[in-house]
């Protein structure tokens, strides 16, 4: 698969741009967190496209963002669970 470039993205309509980025991010996220991959990808797609492109080029920054998303999700799930039990 050829690398995604800023000019390729710019040529696509905005909604498709997120889909294109998601298609690149999803397999990487799925290899780390299979059960939460769709959710994590959705969270990361709210970040600016330019920043997402940088992450695709830098596995280290992508990984730290993925771990951040996992942490946010876990806190969210715990707070949801405690709301239900109260």
């Amino acid at each position: 698969q050829e690398p995604l470039t800023a000019s390729m993205l710019a040529a696509a309509p905005p909604q498709e741009q997120k889909q294109m980025l998601g298609e690149r991010l999803y397999p990487l996220i799925h290899s780390l967190h299979p059960s939460m991959a769709g959710k994590i990808t959705g969270m990361l797609l709210e970040i600016d496209n330019s920043e997402l492109l940088l992450m695709l080029e830098s596995p280290e920054s992508l990984h730290s963002k993925i771990e951040e998303a996992v942490a946010v999700l876990q806190v969210h799930q715990i707070s949801e669970a405690s709301h239900k039990s109260n």
């Binding site: 998601g22 298609e23 991010l25 999803y26 397999p27 769709g38 959710k39 990808t41 959705g42 969270m43 990361l44 797609l45 709210e46 970040i47 963002k65 951040e68 998303a69 942490a71 946010v72 999700l73 806190v75 969210h76 799930q77």
Partner: peptide, 23 residues
């Protein structure tokens, strides 16, 4: 620092072609 990530974000649905290996 507080995370800017939103836990209520819409889930991403990958295209079927990507997932076909798992189905």
């Amino acid at each position: 620092k507080k995370s800017t990530l939103n836990p209520n974000a819409k889930e991403f649905n990958p295209s079927k072609t990507l997932l076909s290996v798992n189905k």
